[in-house]
Design a protein around this nucleic acid. Sequence first.
DNA 1: GGGCGACGTCCTCCATGGTCACCATGCCGC
DNA 2: GCGGCATGGTGACCATGGAGGACGTCGCCC
Lengths: 332, 332
Amino acid sequence: MVTMEDVARLAGVSKMTVSNVVNNREGVSDLVRRRVLEAIRQSGYRLNVSARSLRSGRTGVIGLAVPEVDLPYFSHLATLVIDAARRRGHHVAIERTGAAEAGEADALAHSRVLQFDALILSAVVLDGLDERLTGAGCPVVMLGERDFGGRFDHVAMPNEEGMKAATVHLADQGCRRIGIVSGVPREGVNVMTRRYRGYLDGLAERGLSADPPLLFPLDGMTMEAGRDAAHRMVDSGREVDGVVAVTDTVALGVLRGLADRGLRVPDDIRLIGFDDVPESRFLVPSLSSVAPDHRWMAEKAVELAVQRVRAPLRPAEEHVAPFELVIRESTR
Amino acid sequence: MVTMEDVARLAGVSKMTVSNVVNNREGVSDLVRRRVLEAIRQSGYRLNVSARSLRSGRTGVIGLAVPEVDLPYFSHLATLVIDAARRRGHHVAIERTGAAEAGEADALAHSRVLQFDALILSAVVLDGLDERLTGAGCPVVMLGERDFGGRFDHVAMPNEEGMKAATVHLADQGCRRIGIVSGVPREGVNVMTRRYRGYLDGLAERGLSADPPLLFPLDGMTMEAGRDAAHRMVDSGREVDGVVAVTDTVALGVLRGLADRGLRVPDDIRLIGFDDVPESRFLVPSLSSVAPDHRWMAEKAVELAVQRVRAPLRPAEEHVAPFELVIRESTR
DNA sequence: GGGCGACGTCCTCCATGGTCACCATGCCGC
DNA sequence: GCGGCATGGTGACCATGGAGGACGTCGCCC
């Protein structure tokens, strides 16, 4: 392997000067800089990242831990995070938590073992009180849903506002019995709880009753679970005429489940999702959705992560992503 | 930071002994081993991966370079590769090539910079003759489509066989004018060329004419491109009664494009895709597809990569993934 | 029973490729 | 002649792994 030392010898300088050139630092004359660059070209030298990070303590890698890589929402987000990080000269390593406590804890442990400069964690299970978060060994930026008590940088989804807007929209389209397909709101502040509250707020805003609640619970956040919930909804005979689904992925399953029972969207029942994943506009019918600005979120998360690497003691910031409501065929 | 030296002092041994314990090597008595483990526990020691890889030349990281992270096919594959690698004690770093030559070359360059132990490359552009492939600085396992002249380990898709089976299936369902939505077959052996040939083989097998060819070219492998191609197909007035789409993602766009023109699937026109991504069974109508065994592919690719790290000189192997035809509503 | 070799166990020394903090050199102006 | 700046060099240091050697113990053989 060609080392910095070899380049230095070839260019007739010390390896520190080579290091300075490689890192674009000041204090190297143009003449010497050119000579070094030429020597690098000739020798085919490549920087050894292990050696650099051993000495400097930085790896240039940001961890991104998400529940599932192959849910459209997260894979889309991952793409945007990778791009944002690349523009700032960082690489991204993706971890999969499986939406399980063990997975999230693993991601935190890996952040130490693999020495991420920072970890962007889309936490579903852990909350701000868990000591594993503080013991991560690197700055952690929370992405998404839970309440972290202001102890971490946090890029949040507009869960309540978005869901409220979706519900109000359904009401304005004439729906009177609006159901929600979601996980069961649990203790603590998580996606389910916030979105459910947004749904209730929306009903209240238009004077619709939430009693008895038209909540059709999910077993997981998958298409499969969405379809099952839709089956249960129709089979219950509760005459729902509008549905908000907790994510687009779930909505895709609901769409299928309704078709299985011979219901047409939007004629018999209207449907709206959350996330606006790329697929949504191509479905038949195309799916209305709450569209948080994913690019903005990715950008913000990476920005916070990179900032905190440089200034570890800056107070934690909390940002809520902007969103818009995208109206398509499923709620026309 | 707690180092190996600290642990050694605490346990009253040399750091080499700690190293041996950490790496589960022979030649450490049970007593000493327990003492060391206890010292590790007490001190909260974490192995420094940078130092290890500087010394050993291995990082334990396998690179996975795919055209797009947020295409369902690739995100699904990525999940499976991550799992397969984890079972073998490796991590995966995902690179995005953008299906461009620059991106693929970048991935190869990164493989040196980030010192992957191996790179699994889903190449769309580079072929086996490109010298950048051999200069990767680590073993490369090709995943997918192109011909690499037996110079690399290669896990291939059943492109021709699968497409032929799909075409024959359409014919057997009564289709007489079967079109294909695909990129234009180009010089060299790539996905498009192989799948197009499979389509021609299928037509021939059932005695259907391919003259003039019913090829509706794509501008990219996206849903959007699929929809546009479908529009052009219908607007051309060529009375196609069956379509094979080059991927499920494209098929999803085609489905939408046909709906835009008021055509019903499968009543007016039948449609089949390739890849069997998770979404396909939930679409309305659910999408028939050629289903290569993705888990098998991921497993094989990782296995070849890990093997080659240990035995760099083993001759290259070529494997073709098994597949089955999944018949759903879109071709009933 | 004593000497010798083998073996199990652990340690010492050095290598790994960069980076950091500090130092040396030379040139300039005052 | 001296201080200061611009430029580049020096040697220690980061945490780990590998080779080979030291040390003690045990068994074997004469």
